[in-house]
Simulated scan of single mutants.
Amino acid sequence: MRKTTISSRSRRLAAAAVALGSCLALGVPAGGAAAAPADPVPTVFFGDSYTANFGVSPVNNTDSERGWCFQATENYPTVAARRLKNKDITLDVKSDVSCGGALVEHFWQEQQLPFGAGTLSAQQDALKADTRLVVGGMGGNTLGFTSILKQCSDKLRQPSLLPGEPVDPDQPAGECKDFFESQDGKAWLDYKLDQAEGDLDQMLQRTSYFAPDAERILVGYPRLVPKNTTKCLTAAPGQTELPFADVPQDALPILDAVQKRLDDRMKQVAADNGADFVDLYAATGSNTACDGANRGIGGLLENSKLTLFDQPIPWYAHPNEKGRDIQAKHVADKIETVLNR
């Protein structure tokens, strides 16, 4: 992994040198950027279920295969664009290709939809030469966060609509803390984090290739588990299940540490590629799944706003409407900063 990272950084340094030479030749100050344009900004949103805002209803494209992306009509890209419009910053959203279940590799490869519903083209196909802003987040599915949750929960291991398998089904769910702190579990986590980092690096490089004049904003994930995990031992108002169901309390810091490690990798990849980063993890410590009425994350088995085959679908630790609005605020603030610098 280290050799690959050094190689990719070397390529980026070379590309930066070429770009610097071009700027000097054109008389443009190095590092300079125009103010926010008066015209609408051609924009593409990409990402996984956290960009699509799985669980928020209604969903887009219910009459097509894209309905299986569970992309909310009022997802954070839509809400962020509306917030910006109120500040006289208009995004001309050409595409929002975010889709539940997307791996980072689905930025450049087709995505198979569930239940044999078909395939979607690579998300990078939405990028054009005139794209000026690219925003979104991915990485959690490549990391395998669903498998981590299933490793720690007997309830999630039962047949359900949540896809994926535990990391090691032979290991008891109640012993997941020991598993992830053991040699095998630690090695698996390190490998998956390296994979997510490498794929994100390739994704941002591809974004620069297909939309060379675009500002790029990588959006991190909101925090799921609070620092004080005793808050997770109380059900949210109106709920009977605990926020993390039967995940043992001693495993909750493991989940948080894994999420923080992914956040740090995403932040570093963005910096290495000259992209901007929205650090939602750092901004949402008071809106975790365990913060009761202030929670911005729906509990693992708390019913979301969606149904499938006439059955309610749980949030599975995705942003609820409050969390969606928090995402939209921070993303809109970052877009405004980027377009005005």
Results as ranks from 00 to 15, higher is better:
99 C>V: 00
73 T>Q: 12
98 S>M: 13
88 D>H: 07
89 I>R: 02
76 Y>S: 10
74 E>C: 00
75 N>Y: 11
97 V>E: 12
96 D>M: 04
77 P>A: 10
89 I>S: 01
94 K>I: 10
68 W>E: 03
80 A>G: 08
82 R>S: 07
63 D>E: 04
95 S>L: 08
76 Y>N: 13
81 A>C: 04
77 P>V: 09
85 K>D: 07
72 A>H: 10
71 Q>M: 04
72 A>D: 09
96 D>V: 03
93 V>Q: 03
73 T>K: 13
93 V>P: 01
91 L>D: 09
73 T>W: 07
73 T>V: 15
71 Q>C: 03
100 G>T: 05
91 L>G: 06
74 E>R: 06
100 G>F: 01
65 E>K: 05
67 G>S: 11
69 C>Q: 08
89 I>C: 00
63 D>C: 00
93 V>R: 01
92 D>F: 10
70 F>K: 03
77 P>E: 10
87 K>I: 05
88 D>G: 04
79 V>N: 02
67 G>Y: 06
83 R>V: 13
78 T>L: 12
70 F>Y: 13
74 E>Y: 04
90 T>Y: 14
100 G>Q: 01
93 V>M: 04
71 Q>R: 12
94 K>S: 11
82 R>L: 05
62 T>Y: 01
73 T>E: 15
65 E>S: 07
77 P>M: 08
80 A>C: 08
95 S>E: 15
96 D>W: 03
89 I>Q: 02
88 D>S: 09
64 S>Q: 13
62 T>P: 01
64 S>M: 10
77 P>C: 08
81 A>H: 07
96 D>Y: 04
64 S>G: 14
97 V>P: 13
67 G>I: 07
99 C>T: 01
86 N>F: 12
76 Y>L: 11
67 G>W: 06
68 W>A: 03
64 S>N: 11
75 N>Q: 12
95 S>T: 10
95 S>M: 08
83 R>D: 13
99 C>K: 03
62 T>G: 02
94 K>T: 11
83 R>I: 14
73 T>I: 11
73 T>Y: 08
69 C>Y: 05
82 R>G: 05
91 L>T: 06
62 T>W: 00
72 A>E: 09
68 W>R: 05
98 S>F: 11
85 K>P: 04
73 T>R: 11
72 A>K: 08
72 A>L: 12
78 T>K: 15
87 K>W: 07
79 V>D: 06
69 C>T: 07
99 C>D: 01
66 R>Y: 10
72 A>V: 11
92 D>N: 14
98 S>L: 13
85 K>W: 05
79 V>P: 03
72 A>I: 08
62 T>A: 05
69 C>S: 09
69 C>A: 07
71 Q>I: 02
83 R>F: 14
95 S>P: 05
91 L>K: 03
63 D>M: 00
75 N>T: 06
76 Y>I: 09
74 E>W: 02
93 V>L: 03
92 D>H: 14
85 K>C: 05
86 N>L: 15
68 W>H: 04
93 V>H: 01
66 R>T: 08
90 T>F: 14
79 V>R: 04
76 Y>F: 15
88 D>N: 10
77 P>T: 08
100 G>Y: 02
91 L>E: 09
81 A>P: 06
74 E>Q: 06
94 K>V: 14
68 W>I: 01
87 K>P: 06
88 D>P: 00
97 V>H: 13
93 V>S: 00
82 R>C: 02
70 F>A: 07
96 D>K: 02
84 L>P: 10
67 G>K: 07
69 C>M: 07
